[in-house]
Structure formats: C-alpha cells, structure tokens
Design a protein around this nucleic acid. Sequence first.
DNA 1: GCAGGGATTGTTATCGCTAACATCACGGAC
DNA 2: GTCCGTGATGTTAGCGATAACAATCCCTGC
Lengths: 343, 343
Amino acid sequence: MEETAAPVRAPREPAMSDVAKLAGVSHQTVSRVLNGHPNVRRQTQLRVRAAIEELGYRPNRAARTLVTGRSHLIGVVTQNSTLYGPSSLLASFELAAAARGFVVSVRRVRELDRASITAAVEHHRDQRVAGIVVIAPTGPADAALSEVPGDVPLVAVDGDPGRRGAALVTVDQEAGARAATSHLLAAGHRTVWHVSGPEDWFDAAGRVRGWQHALREAGAEVPPVSTGDWSAASGYRAGQLLARMPEVTAVFAANDHQALGVLRALAERGRRVPEEVSVVGFDDVPEAPYFIPPLTTVRPDFDAVAEQTLALLLDRMAGGDEAPPRTITPALVERASVAPPPG
Amino acid sequence: MEETAAPVRAPREPAMSDVAKLAGVSHQTVSRVLNGHPNVRRQTQLRVRAAIEELGYRPNRAARTLVTGRSHLIGVVTQNSTLYGPSSLLASFELAAAARGFVVSVRRVRELDRASITAAVEHHRDQRVAGIVVIAPTGPADAALSEVPGDVPLVAVDGDPGRRGAALVTVDQEAGARAATSHLLAAGHRTVWHVSGPEDWFDAAGRVRGWQHALREAGAEVPPVSTGDWSAASGYRAGQLLARMPEVTAVFAANDHQALGVLRALAERGRRVPEEVSVVGFDDVPEAPYFIPPLTTVRPDFDAVAEQTLALLLDRMAGGDEAPPRTITPALVERASVAPPPG
DNA sequence: GCAGGGATTGTTATCGCTAACATCACGGAC
DNA sequence: GTCCGTGATGTTAGCGATAACAATCCCTGC
C-alpha cells in the first residue's frame, strides 16, 4: 500500500468560515449564533454550536476588535509598590472587571510624577483600550489626567477630592480620620497626636484634615504633625520622638504599617500600649490583629471602591458624562490598642 | 452668507492610509517606516514621520495582530490574595514585561484548584495571548497545567520543583529553609521548631524539607511541625502552643506574617524574644525590620524570579524547548530576633 | 390566488494592517 | 548599447470578524 504523505496543513486555528462549512451554513450565520442574534432557527443554532465544539473554534478577538472598533480591554495605571491600599484595590478591581467580561491590563509606574502617568496613559491609548483607570493618589498624578484627551473614558481613583467635574472615586479619608480621632478622644485622651502619610498624597492630606477637624470640634489642642512616608520605618522614626514625650497618650497613625513602627518605638522605650499610650492605624491590613497589641484601625472597603470604579467607568464607556464622583466611607475596627489614658 | 453645515466627519482615528496620503507615499511605505525596514530613502522616512506626528497617528494593534497572528500580550494567572510573595512577584513581572514592550493581562483566581486554573488559562487562550505565566504554588494548580495543549508558550512559577521537563522557575525553598535553620543551630539552639505553611503548597513543603534536612545534618531532634496557612492568625495559634513549652527556644516560621503571629503569642505569654526564644521568618516583608523585635528572615529575590520567568517565556515563545528549569536561591537577612538560647 | 411582511439565511463590503509580488529607475559589466 | 541586479516604491491580496443589504421562504389576510 502506497503511503501518501498527508498534506502538511498549516496549523491554522479554525476560523469562522471553517465552522460555517462544517455546519453547512454561511459564516454570517455562525456570527449570529455567537452574538446571540434572535433570528436563527433553533436547529441551525444547534448545528453551529456542535460544529464550534467539534473544531474547538474560538473567535478571533483581534478581528472582532478591528471591525467593531471596540475592545474589551481596560487599562489600569498604578504605582509600582506593595502598599496595601493600592494593591488591594487593584486586586479587587481585576476581579470585578473579570466578572463583567473585561480583560485588564496593568501598567505600573515607578514614580507618580506627571510624565510617568502621562506615558502610562498613552501606552494604554496605543493599545486602544476601551477605558482607563488611574490610581492617582498624588497631585502630579492627578494633574496629569487633565492633559489626557477626552476621547477615551477615564476614571481616577483616590484623586483630588476637590477636583470638579471629574470621574472620580475616592475613600472618605476625612471621615475615617475623624472616626479614629474621636474614638481616642472618647476614651478620655486630652488630645491625639498624628503621624501622617506623605504630604503630597491626597489620602494623607485628607486624614490630616479629618484628624484636625475632630480635635477642633472637641476643643482639643492640635499638636504638630510628624510626617511619614507610609513605611514602618517612617512610623518608627516618628514613634521614637513621640515615645520620649510623656504628654503623648494617644497616637493616630495614617496607616497600619506606620502604626507598627510607632508600636515598636514605644515598646523599645518601655511605654506600654494601650496602658500608657493608645494607638490607632488606618487600612486594616490582615496582620493588624496580630500586632502587639492588636491594632484598632480604620477599614476602607476596597471591594466597594473597585465596584464603584468599574460602575463609573462603564457609565463613561456608555457615553455617560453626568455621573457624580463617588465616595466610600470607611469604618472603625476596634481592637486592643486603645484604652483610657493613665492616671 | 449661507452657512453650510460642515460635513460631520466620523471621528475616525487616522489610519495608515491617511498618513500615506499626507506624506505622498503608499501605505506600504508607511508600514515599512514603522517597522524599520531597511530600504526606505532617508528623505521619505522623514516625510512619513512628519506626517505621523502631524496626524497623531497610532498604529492599530488589532489590525496588526490580525494579519501577523502574533500579539504582544502576556497572560498571567495568579491567586487572588495579598500574600506578599505572589504579589511582589507579580509586580516585578509586570515591570519586566513592560520594559520589553509586552502588555500583561492578569487573571486572578479565587481558588487554586484545577478547574479555576484551567478556566483562567482558557480565558487567556481565548484572548490569543502570546504566552502565559501561571503562578502555580499548589499541587492542583500545577497539575492543571499538564492539561494545557502545547500550542501556547507557558511557564509556571513556583510549581512542583519535582516535575520534569516543564518550563518552570522556582525559588530554592529548601536552601532558604536550611539557611534559616542552620543559623539558629549555629546560635547554639539544640533544635528548631517549625511553623509551616499550608501543606499543599510546594513552597511550604520545600521549607519543611530544608528545615528537616538542616536538623538531621546537625544531628538535632526533629520536632513535630505546626501547620499554618501563611496568615498571622495561624502563626498566632501555633505560637500559643509553642509559648507554653519551655523547651522551645527557637522557631522558624514559614513566612514573616506567621512569624508575626508567633511573636505576639510569645509576647503575651511573657516569653522574651530573642532572650528566651529566637524566631526566624521567610520573605523579608518591608515591615519585618519593625516587628518586635526586628525579624531575622530569608529574602527571595522576586525581581530575579520575574526576570528569569520572562526570559524563559521569551525563549519558549521563540520556539525554544530545551531551556532547563531555573532556580533562584534566597538569602538570609540577619536582624535582632535571633540570639543564643538562655542558660 | 396573490400581495405583504416577518423570519431566516446568504452575499458583499469593510475594518487597518502586513506579506508577497510587481514595477520602475538607475548604474555598472560586458 | 543592452542586460541585469539592486534599491525604492507601489499594488494587490488576504487576515477573520461584523454590518448592511439582498434574497428566500413561509404564513397571513383579503
């Protein structure tokens, strides 16, 4: 028996026309089945689906994008950091977007300066994403967004809460900080000291404002702020100073990691928490319950932020232009790091 | 004067043919300029570039992908968690890929079971990604990969180190654990107790092996393992038991967060670290220096893992099939949580 | 019995790009 | 002077989908 060499077919993936041929219909009918058009006979539909199954056909997104001009890609710009807030938000957003059938592509920038943000946004525009989300927690980052042409739907998260007319989702930092501060005052402290985040972050500024507000409202003295950079190291440095001041009985740190640094500085100096000094953080990192002592903190709901961000973006993508900024209010989580002041 | 309504041109983005018209050449010449083909006169090139600039033209990736059959998309599958290791690795990988001109799209799975991983990989295949990276730290996740047809380049990270013939990048967990354990033994401890990660994680298993190995090598007793789940909570629970056992003088926790839980349990029980008990962690999270006391730990170089992963993937994408698994060896970072045993 | 209309399906054009081949001008070898 | 190779450019043909329109088929109403 003579063996005929099988023609080496190019290992091309099956296309719509292959499905059509197998099912005995036109490629357009296949397209209709795929896109759920109403006017396809039940029987035809079944035949087409069977053919799709048999060939292991999957539609070519590039072709679809080319002809429709729409993609299902959402571009995200965020800072390259392992900061708890931004990374939790990112994770939540990716899940939410995936649940709605979007693909998200992340571009990390090393610095949050104007040029980096602009470049990252341009990159996404090059990819012709359907929408862009920028986690823009600093002035320059937020400012870069005003340069972006309006032809692509764009939503900022954690941007300037004072900016007007923007598509923006934020956490109500002021409310969170007020809750933390008031909680300490309610425990009986005469005033509350604050270890803030970096000055150029809106989140940090908002927490400072909320803290001040709560103090003023209670008629308490507003002590000077120690500024940190979100790191435990910076919290530790600030804590070393605070630990030496006997009048300090309550500290509100702008995030949990800074609070961790403060806790260590206090411990080193022999000042017991919460017996001598109370401490409150912000973020509710998963480890917070296992700090020494377990940290009372403020928890922003990142899932909610992500959900609102996606909702706002979808609205923008659908041509909406009116949706107001959305705000998520964080909640106080009480643990063991707060007690009445000594004496 | 009669006002003629300006024809409302569709706000179509400029295409290659528009550039061609403006530059007075054919679209093919524009394509050649864009793709750096050699045979284009210098002067023509300049004219084309000027036209591109003037129109703000950007090539349509969908069209390019459609015709070439190649995309610049890399799909990543990872667990939806804020675990330090996976998220650091992901961040490093995104940066490395971006530096080489790739776009990365992340798909998070809620569980690391076979079905979820398979679905996520299928999702990426639907998108016709150029390559896939799966962070596959558990048996089921790794097993799912053997089901994936070989038509798409795929690299696993943190997969089964024992698997043969796979494109795999791993951290040498055993070496890291040996270093940690030996360090404690060298300080004079008779043996070292271990709080492991979840049993079904390769990382956890490797650390257990390394720990056992170091103990056996030193002729030390191998105490029973407490199993955790990477969380501070689980470390705390394990720590509560260890703290009650006077013979425990050295603990190696499988990650820093578990170590944090152990530290708190010891503190609650009044057992001082490192005077009475020494503790070593794994990961070197940014906060580790600010634990109480600063934590001695083992640091895997995630940038290196990411770099190797990308290199291996690019090799696979180029048709390579021989590249051996790659391993990164972590390094011990000494801080203040280790001291000689009391007495 | 025949027009009208909706349901169903097919045909053709098009999206914006690259690959392959065609064309043209030019200059050196014989 | 003719021929041919080479560089520079243009022309044509798809890639694989959707959109718009055309063509059937079949059923209803009068």
